[in-house]
Write a protein that binds this DNA or RNA. Structure first.
Lengths: 360, 360
DNA sequence: TTGTAGGCGTTATCAC
DNA sequence: GTGATAACGCCTACAA
């Protein structure tokens, strides 16, 4: 910074002001400084800035299973939206264990980032509050009963209901939901977990159609992974309970595609013998053979809503403008409106995309 | 840190030493300090550490198109391996433009990270050197003629040759390679680009089989994306040049799966009418119907080799041990061997996985 | 084996 | 509108 100051014939403080677009600096001076910085390949040191001001201009995304289509497409959408708002995105994988989630939050995200987007796996809301160090955080698909943070959710209930309704509409007599166990109905987490809310949606659709529901309408999956999902198809075909199943709703596209592969292993035709619906709307679902009907979450809308919330909180924290005065289109939803302190809870746009797997 | 020092009854310096496992501190003292830190939820501030020592304990992965299966599976593998070695992984998406790649390197990766793993799109090796600020970097699939950095590559030539050979072996009379254009042979970048090297492998296989090659053996693709790949299938079927094509090698699995979808749109059967081979070995390839024969890159091996190189360079930079004395299994390949200064160039393990798409 | 002191590159608070 | 100066929290000679 000293070098730039010298080259531009000003003091270091002036360089700092000019580079961050402080209006106090004369336009001509600022331009001269910017050019000097450019020529010297100068870039402000993030560590120093963060140490001194507590702001880094970085927003972090921490997500489970970066190698699966849905999380990776979601991270990509978040990254794009973060960059569009003049922040630097970083993505981190929370590979399952609770300790790992905690470590990521402690060691990098909460320290380095001005705000975080987190898809909680194991950590509770209360623990998160302690780990957040007071930094703004928006949670994804967090359904805890009394939320501590803003959150944006996928349309678990409505989406699942639409999926099951669609199967019934096309004439399925025995619809099976792959993922949750029937016993879950007894669970007190029905309202506070993603599975529970999706199951609730399914039940609503069954009820509206006048379908009586029992254990034979659910095929539980220990892990929502490709291998168990593929094997679940064998279980469906081998068990008497599901013998007349003619429609299946899988709780994620990845499950649906693996399940479909399992059906293909046994020569069962989709949609002729069994119709199939997924959830997420990953790219893959469009290119599968047959292409997969699915409840598509609008990831761009999800990202937009998430960042609306997060950036409002970040600005509320300091009561000022963003760190990068040059970058922003500055549409921080709701200018001038005081941001409410109570955690907000939004739902991303979605649609039922009808494709070959339910074409009859 | 002062609080921890007070709680443990030592000075701040002692806390710093103890927490990083400096052998000078007595084991009992160190333990006492660790417990105090734990109780107070103390974590060293990365910004301050990085500012003072130049080391952050973070390794960055910068990669193109985080929302595609191959890059996302690769990032996940890298993240796991980075964590396994006691560093914190962060992933960034370089969404295409050269400016974006530069910005990512300038603004965060090169500043914040002790080392970087980069899959270069538009930026030249020389530009990278300037942007790296002397920090170690390992490139992925960088084939520049005189490399500046270590790199780890996929088996472009051998893998492609194996793919084409396999198609010929199962009896294909007219093999078409989807991706590069025949004109590329005239290009001087044959040896220094991924496409070029994969094409070279194809040509070798053709030659070894005594097959004469012309433009009808190549179906060029403007962008290696699903939509153009799907349409490429229509082009193949509609053009007289490819009328008798009975085997297709696609340069990535994503292309192959989209291409296969295009064939299905026209009712062409795989493998009966046309056999198909992909490249990468993404999870999706195993669950496609029919499952896809592919040249699978061993991502764990790729990650291992990449981090062997990178961590050796990081340690050479400071001539010491890793930042986290507790974390490492410490198998930094080749103990005691002086690390050569010349850029290394390694190739990841791979295998041809034969599946239904070439079963005849 | 432990304590002391100075500085890493910024930004914020003052004067001017 | 600009310049001097003191922190931010940590690391590391060096002294004890």
């Amino acid at each position: 910074m000293s070098d730039v100051a010298k080259a531009a014939g000003v003091s270091r403080a002036t360089v700092s002001y000019a580079l961050r677009g402080d209006p106090r600096i004369a336009a001509a001076t600022a331009e001269k400084i910017r050019q000097a910085a450019q020529k010297l390949h100068y870039n402000a040191n993030i560590s120093a800035r963060s140490l001194r001001s507590g702001r880094s201009g970085i927003i972090g995304v921490a997500i489970y299973e970066l190698d699966r289509p849905y999380p990776s497409e979601m991270s990509a959408a978040m990254s794009r939206e973060i960059a569009r708002r003049g922040y630097q995105p970083i993505v981190q994988q929370t590979s399952g264990s609770k300790d790992d989630e905690i470590m990521i939050l402690q060691k990098v995200t909460s320290q380095l980032c001005d705000g975080m987007i987190f898809s909680p796996g194991q950590v509770s809301d209360e623990e998160l509050r302690a780990l957040s160090h007071g930094k703004p955080m928006v949670l994804l698909d967090d359904i805890s009963p009394d939320p501590v943070f803003d959150s944006v959710n996928t349309a678990c209930e409505d989406g699942s209901a639409a999926a099951v309704r669609h199967l019934i509409d096309i004439g399925c007599k025995h619809v099976v939901v792959v993922g949750p166990s029937y016993d879950m109905l007894l669970d007190d987490k029905m309202a506070s977990s993603v599975v529970g809310r999706r199951m609730t949606g399914c039940l609503r659709a069954f009820e509206e159609a006048g379908v009586d529901v029992d254990a034979s309408n659910f095929l539980p999956l220990e892990h929502w992974d490709p291998i168990p999902a593929r094997e679940a198809a064998y279980r469906l075909l081998d068990s008497d309970d599901y013998r007349d199943a003619d429609g299946v709703f899988c709780m994620t596209d990845t499950i649906a595609i693996s399940f479909m592969r399992g059906l293909a292993d046994r020569g069962v035709r989709v949609p002729d013998d069994i119709a199939l619906v997924g959830f997420d709307g990953v790219t893959e679902s469009e290119y599968a053979v047959p292409s997969l009907t699915t409840v598509r979450t609008d990831l761009d809308d999800l990202a937009r809503r998430t960042l609306d919330l997060l950036i409002d909180r970040i600005n509320a924290n300091v009561g000022g403008a963003g760190i990068d005065a040059t970058g922003g289109t500055g549409d921080n939803a709701g200018d001038g409106l005081a941001f409410p302190d109570a955690p907000q809870r939004l739902t991303a746009a979605w649609e039922l995309v009808k494709r070959e797997s339910t074409r009859r």
